[in-house]
Design a protein around this nucleic acid. Sequence first.
RNA 1: GCCCCCGUAGCCCAAUCGGCAGAGGCAGGCGACUUAAAAUCGCUCGAGUGCGAGUUCGAAUCUCGUCGGGGGUGCCA
Length: 965
Amino acid sequence: MNDTPHRYTAELAGRIETTWQDRWEEQQLFRAPNPAGPWADPETVARFDGAMFVLDMFPYPSGKGLHIGHPLGYIATDVTARFNRMLGKNVLYSLGYDAFGLPAEQYAVQTGQHPRKTTEDNIVVMARQLKRLGMSYDDRRAIRTIDPDYYRWTQWIFLQIYNSWYDENAPREDGGRGRARPIAELVAQFESGERATPDGRAWEDLTEPERAHVLDEHRLAYTSQAPVNWAPGLGTVLSNEEVTNEGRSERGNFPVFKKNLRQWMMRITAYADRLADDLDRVDWPEKVRIMQRNWIGRSHGASVRFAVDGSETVLEVFTTRPDTLFGTTFMVVSPEHPVVDRLVADVWPEGTKPSWTGGANTPAEAVDAYRLAASRKTDIERQTEGKDKTGVFTGSFAVNVATGERVPVFVADYVLMGYGTGQVMGVPGQDQRDWDFATAFDLSIVRTVQPPPDHDLDTAFTGEGPAINSTNDGVSLDGLGVAEAKARMTQWLTEIGAGEETVTYKLRDWLFSRQRYWGEPFPVVFDEDGVAHGLPDSMLPLELPDVPDYSPKTFDPEDNSSEPEAPLARATDWVEVDLDLGDGKGMRRFRRETNTMPNWAGSCWYYLRYLDPENPDAVVDPANEEYWIGPRPAPIAGAPEGAVDPGGVDLYIGGVEHAVLHLLYARFWHKVLHDLGYLSSSEPFRKYFSQGYIQAPAYQDSRGQYVEASEVIETAGADGQPEFTWNGEPVTREFGKVGKSLKNMISPDDMYAAYGADTLRLYELGMGPLEASKPWETRAVIGSQRFLQRLWRNVVDEESGELVVGEDDPSAEVLRVLHRTIDAVRADYVSLSFNTAIARLTELNNALTKVSGGAPRAAVEPLILMTAPLAPHICEELWARLGHVESLAYEAFPVADPAYLVEDTVTCVVQVRGKVRARLEVPSDIAEDALRERALAIPKIADQVAGGVRTVIVRAPKLVNVVPA
RNA sequence: GCCCCCGUAGCCCAAUCGGCAGAGGCAGGCGACUUAAAAUCGCUCGAGUGCGAGUUCGAAUCUCGUCGGGGGUGCCA
């Protein structure tokens, strides 16, 4: 029989936790009122002290359920949500499911179940695990991307983007220029003649397909032929992330080919500048802002036009180093570039070196062979060949505009078609790639920046230095530094009409279609001329049809000529439809788009739907948007002078693996909707915090195979280092991401059973800073349980279950500890420093344990309130046992009394030359002079500075440093 | 290759503005409770901050170099 029936064991914790979880749910305690929309309750909203939107990256409902790595961020947001409720804020906090996607489809194909069934089953499992963790979600707002009521609006947003164009000259309210406008306004410009059509004909003289084609050049969502990763053996296209370094599919290890297919694209490049500039206005980790800026890859330089000798053809290059133009000794064009055809000469001209010809008899032969070889190489092969430069001479010469010299034009695959103009000027003196090419092809090298004396003579010099060899009749750069020389050269190029200042980006338009079943259908149909039409709102949602077979058609893995067949294409009854689009043309025959949207679509805007999930009339009521995420009066700390707050979610926590794509795509959509007037905020996430990973030990046997981590036995070795064995065999330990592949899965369910959810929450946040990755150690979880057991014992007698709190006033000493703790914990919660908050609470808890006569109620109650965001169940239970009827979820968070924060006396350290030599107990308000005198009067100090004092540094009241002469 | 972050006790981690290296936890040691063990409780041991310079009255903190670990990116003109 248990001696201590009221001890806080895992079993008791489990009972308490499930009881409170049910109670919270019954009382609908965490439902946040909205000011407008279907749930409008402005009176309740008015009772709060402002709004706070706390957001997690919503999960993909995997069949394996949660592991202990997942909840870290969720616990952090839950603590933040609970803390802010206690500060009087109206807190919006929920968690939906990102439920379309490839794994569900693949699992469905394997098991013969419908992906909706397996997905919904998985959601049930995850929802149970999360409820058991004690999350304070508003359950009404937990949207699922697969629900037609949700993806109706995903489709609606797609249509807004499709029906928009980017007007680079339109003024914005923030003072800049460029914003999305309805496509109808562009049509009006064409109709009125304000804007000329590409070929100059009048708009009304264009056929409908011609007009559609013109508009496609402007739409923010458009179709185009684009190269994609095609795996015939899988019957599907793959994202780049799904392709291995060896150019095979991650799943199944099938060959992957680049294939040109008609695809939907999103014109995200139109927003490149704003996506880069507005990073200054959001409160994000600097690391993530740098990653996004790198991804956008804005670079400033100049475009320069080169005449081709004896031809009308003009080559146009982009360079970030116009100052080095005098050092251009050759030109290079990408093999895929259409201009190559016009460059190929009939015969090898005089001066052609043997190494330039590739052994061919004519330039045409050489270039054809080279282009064919390049086309057969994958991107990966081009990369893995590294720095070995290959190429052939075209037989043409261009004219260096600065020197007037003829320079040979080459075709080489180190120049990429997809960046800049696909043509470069070869400047070996100041570019290592060009140097390598010049060396391989025996081309001349002219330095136009003076390298320092210690510079390696066999390499390019890319650093800062004075320009040399850079003077002609029109311009001289000699002696100028790089920045000045760039400006001077760009100015000269502009004057003579040979070039101008230019900005380029690495960012590409976003490939937006997938040949999959389990995704949002495009709300688009094609008429018999092949012209695309967006469906009218009244036809949304366009529901994903049930099909008998949702697996993609597979082919011979090596059959590059095969074409993907989207599963929806087989639903012929659905694809071929007669519709009246309401455009005055009556009932017509259409063919539906059979691609589906990528996984990103649903996750691009889910946070907006949390704001107003049941609104049938709008994606979100403008008043709700404004209330929850509208711009605030003050910009974020550290924003540039004059910056305006962009609005957005108050706190978004998620893994850094989504730092580039998801966050960038969501920002893009948000800005489009802002431009079109649907949103007052211009950024989705005002503050983003990237959490670290929890790593768990994984073990490999002598063959390098991972073994089940839970079955590994640790022993102390002869040298005191731990040794590990599995089934008696020695294994080696490493730390890695938790999961199936490393066989180190640890389920939160096991932790609930062994310790309880409150202990798990406390342990995960107590491990270290939220942003750090740290190793899981099951053995250490006990420490968090002990903390809660001590807290329990401060209130409840383990034998009898009676209250044991003292009703006397706390001592001054206890009050000082209490108020110092309040002060620190408040600050720690605000800065997400949960590990130090836990340490402070532990300290206070330990101190109360030692108070004779029982921990005083006046100290225990604030301790419980402060611990409640971290460990809500046990705190609710103790709060109730202390006689409170209401949940503590909306109790005011304790406030520190400044009177208890100041000490009467402090210990002052007295240093000699920076080394501590003595200590003084002094009044905390001691004057500098008095402190100096007292320090110098200490005999030990006086002895040490007998030779005289050079200076005394006093930092009253805590430090005196005496520097002897 | 380039860019960013991190190295503090056996382990995970603290340390406002540069001012006594230690808040908290794990493990270890000692003790209490127990017939015994586990659990629990109390007490306790423990590093001079990866390494080398520099700045400073004073450096874990700032600067430079170097080593180790992690992340991003990659022929981006």
